[in-house]
Design a binder for these strands. Structure first.
Length: 219
DNA sequence: ATCCCGAGGG
DNA sequence: CCCTCTGGAT
């Protein structure tokens, strides 16, 4: 795909999505970190319902540790994978206190060393909390990248590297949220709304019988 | 490659 | 019913 077409796609997305930021509710970087950990394979809507109650009671590493495993689970039961997530969140909180004075670190290495934090979550924190031009490739970006051919690849890492190397500089920071919101509301996994899509005419996927784009399992 | 796992949508 | 949702750890 040539650079003009790429730029045109991002310009249209930016026009259609005036506020490209996360829909997770948070008031501190710590809250954002916990919300993003909980958001794995879950809808942000469901995460917000849980964290609204959780953060009201506990929104510091020590306060969450004080809840204990079953206490924390009681707040996040309605989210999928709750047992594994509760364990990870507790360990993550302990790590924050032991290694970072209770603060959220701002480097990829330190973030990925935290329990429950992998490359995708680290990319979200670096972008959303610290303003770094990272692109977190989740199920939405993987699908949208491959469908539009903005960034193709068999693995999320491949797709991330293509996005990073080809996205127009002025859209590097907002690309992640522009693409995720486009994927969530228009370029949906099932029954994509091509009829109301602002980039149909620029998209390879529209009106073609292509294989469904499924995200790879694991890494 | 497999497990974790609830809720909402179609 | 089946699919999907801002994945990560083993």
């Amino acid at each position: 795909m040539n650079a003009q077409k790429r730029l045109a796609i991002f310009e249209r997305l930016a026009k259609a999505i005036p506020n490209p930021t996360t829909e997770l509710e948070y008031t501190t970087t710590f809250e954002l970190l916990i919300a993003v950990i909980l958001s794995a394979q879950a809808t942000d809507k469901g995460v917000n319902i849980a964290t609204r109650k959780l953060f009201k009671v506990a929104n510091t590493p020590q306060a969450i540790l004080d809840l204990g495993l079953e206490g924390l689970e009681s707040y996040i039961k309605t989210i999928g994978l709750y047992h594994a997530k509760a364990q990870n969140v507790l360990k993550c909180c302990a790590q924050l206190l032991a290694l970072h004075g209770g603060e959220v670190p701002d480097t990829r290495e330190a973030l990925e060393a935290l329990a429950g934090v992998g490359r995708k979550t680290a990319n979200v924190i670096l972008n959303t909390a610290f303003g770094h031009p990272t692109i977190a490739v989740d199920t939405h970006l993987f699908r949208v990248g491959n469908r539009t051919k903005l960034a193709t690849g068999k693995t999320v890492l491949e797709v991330e590297q293509r996005f990073l190397s080809t996205t127009p500089k002025q859209y590097l920071h907002d690309a992640h949220h522009l693409l995720i919101l486009h994927g969530r509301y228009t370029c949906t996994a099932r029954n994509p709304k091509c009829g109301e899509c602002c980039i149909v005419d620029l998209c390879e996927f529209h009106d073609k019988q292509l294989q469904p784009v499924k995200p790879p399992a694991g890494n």
